[in-house]
Write a protein that binds this DNA or RNA. Structure first.
Lengths: 349, 349
DNA sequence: TCGTAACAATGAAACGATTCAAAGTTCAGC
DNA sequence: GCTGAACTTTGAATCGTTTCATTGTTACGA
């Protein structure tokens, strides 16, 4: 019964007794059509329940009104927040966002890039898993504008928005050192993730400035709460004397996981025995068992700026590629400072 | 320079000196093509950097390999979790998911439904904002299979997957009453949200079973951490004698917000002064300042089942519409039980 | 009443893939 | 060498929209 195929513009034209071009004009350039005809066409559209076929539209247009975004982990509020602001910014240009989650997996990342190319997206925002210079080169050759997200563009020829992870790592470690801690641990992984290695590098720099300070590196298999909990359990199992007195986690999810393990062990007090700091300052950091100190990244600005850079590439014939680097902030809460008053410090860039 | 339009199947055909149909066969039915020809075509594809145009493909096919999903709030881990499992389930059928966030706004909801219809999605999963029976009726007439998500289908003719919110509300309130609390408060809103009113209804039922117990309803403007914090601040401002001794929040985000306000006020102890329970059991509930009791919903099963029901509607000519209702579980943590041992209870369905 | 400028409506062509009936090729078996 | 079945390849038609050159209509000033 209701199994008839969807009405097309042609059906509408027949029903309203006008030409197909006229229907199209009603849809796209209402001013070109007389009031009488317009009404007739709109009536027909309503009666037939006509809905534009976007595939045909795009085919003709040669381009979609769509931007592809590939992020490392949609389970991480940091990324959802960035994507949200990118969506809002894209909507201002009348574009929609297609979201792909690579889950730190190169194959899935590749898969989404393929998919988005098939969709003929206007451009791409990628928070890359590893080294994708080859892939990027191919995109450049095809003329598909691409902006790196949360990763500084090494090679020229690409725009990027990122946050200075080295500075963020330094900020976190320096804070722990300023509190008098000397046996630091860094939790994150795999180190093939650039964000992880940069944050570690910054932390290492800070530690080297202070004599007598050490930095132990604990690998986590990924960047989730669960992975953090596993590393935390290992710390709990250690002889108390062997434990670090401060832990810097490569993101807040890991930090929350570590916190769960440590607080389950009644003997360990945060921050008295072990100070803990995360990265990203997600909304849930403030409501953690022990409110979590963290490094805040300007997610809203990241997403917005990424879209702006992409828009530049789309508008301009020979765009200036720009690498925008934001500066992270230290947010101090109880997990490092105890009951002391919270403060916000900014890295010197 | 690289501004030439993307290669089409025709370009590939010319380059490989075969017919367009052959190229199409290489792509879709490789077995129909001889090895020699196949190699030649693949070489041409590679050399020209050909990428299939999905719009043309869909236009011809008349349908996309896509399912539209509209949820109430992507910022809520409950929904991201449901969507994630729906994506996985859809991938098994070779379908991708397009995600729309209505943000509890009917207009945005409507906007996404339009958009998805233009995309000719195979079907729709909707977690509706309010009463959308008219809209659904229109979808049914157009023959677009639709499954309600997290909301039981009242009308016949639609499948749905949901969790028994009345039972969940009962479970939460009953738990608070069992702990000896009598001055209960419910925080949630707007009450036009079905999930909110059902959970409240269940809670009311539990309260009525116990003489001397009261339930105060505190409206929150929405279901976010921020809204919860605002309600929490109002509680803090009250005369201590006027405060409830137990608070049931319509979701965990609100509960975390309330918790933030209460813990900022040194005089108030959770759960001693006020017991607090949320809803959804998101990952962050366990790592909250005071680990949060909550009502767990089977998010993984919700998403998966929704896709399965949709697949049924797609396969069958005259599908049996089914309303699958899952049963929520009570998860007890410190925010209600203090340092007592955690437990998990299941509602009687 | 005529000329013409402004405005409306027309419909064929194009976008790029898939389909499928028809034509072409190969080759085993006799 | 011939037959016919099995396998390959071909290319026109099709999907639904937008575009745009062309044709048709209106109305105004001379």
């Amino acid at each position: 019964m209701s199994m008839t195929r969807a009405a097309s513009i042609k059906d509408v034209a027949n029903h309203a007794k006008v030409a197909v071009g006229t229907v199209s004009n009603v849809l796209n350039y209402p001013d070109r059509v007389s009031k009488r005809t317009k009404e007739r066409v709109l009536k027909a559209i309503d009666e037939l329940g006509f809905v534009r076929n976007d595939a045909a539209r795009q085919l003709r247009a040669g381009q979609s009104r769509t931007i592809g975004v590939v992020v490392l982990d949609v389970g991480n509020p940091f990324f959802t927040s960035v994507v949200r602001s990118a969506e809002d910014a894209a909507a201002l240009n009348g574009s929609a966002v297609l979201l792909g989650d690579s889950g730190h997996d190169s194959d899935r990342e590749s898969h989404y890039i393929d998919l988005f190319q098939e969709q003929r997206v206007q451009g791409l925002l990628i928070s890359p898993v590893g080294d994708i210079s080859e892939r990027m080169e191919a995109l450049r050759e095809r003329g598909l504008p691409t902006v790196l997200l949360d990763r500084k563009a090494d090679e020229t020829g690409f725009s990027s928005v990122s946050v200075d992870d080295d500075a963020g790592g330094y900020l976190a470690a320096r804070h722990l050192l300023d509190l008098g801690r000397r046996r630091l641990a860094f939790v994150g992984g795999p180190t093939s993730i650039r964000q992880v290695s940069d944050r570690l590098q910054g932390a290492t720099r800070a530690v080297q400035e202070v004599s007598g300070a050490r930095l132990e590196v604990l690998d986590s298999e990924n960047m989730t709460v669960l992975a953090g909990r596993r590393v935390g359990n290992k710390l709990v199992e250690r002889d108390p004397a062997e434990r670090p007195d401060a832990v810097f986690c490569a993101n807040d999810l890991i930090a929350l996981g570590v916190m769960q393990s440590l607080t389950m062990m009644n003997g360990i007090k945060i921050p008295d025995d072990i100070a803990l700091i995360g990265y990203d300052d997600i909304d849930f950091a403030v409501s953690a068992v022990v409110p979590l100190s963290s490094i805040r990244q300007p997610t809203e600005a990241l997403g917005r700026t990424a879209i702006e850079l992409l828009a530049e590439e789309l508008d301009t014939q020979h765009p200036q590629h720009r690498a925008v680097v934001f500066t992270p902030e230290l947010v101090v809460r109880q997990s490092t400072a105890g009951v002391g008053a919270p403060a916000v410090l900014t890295a010197v860039s």
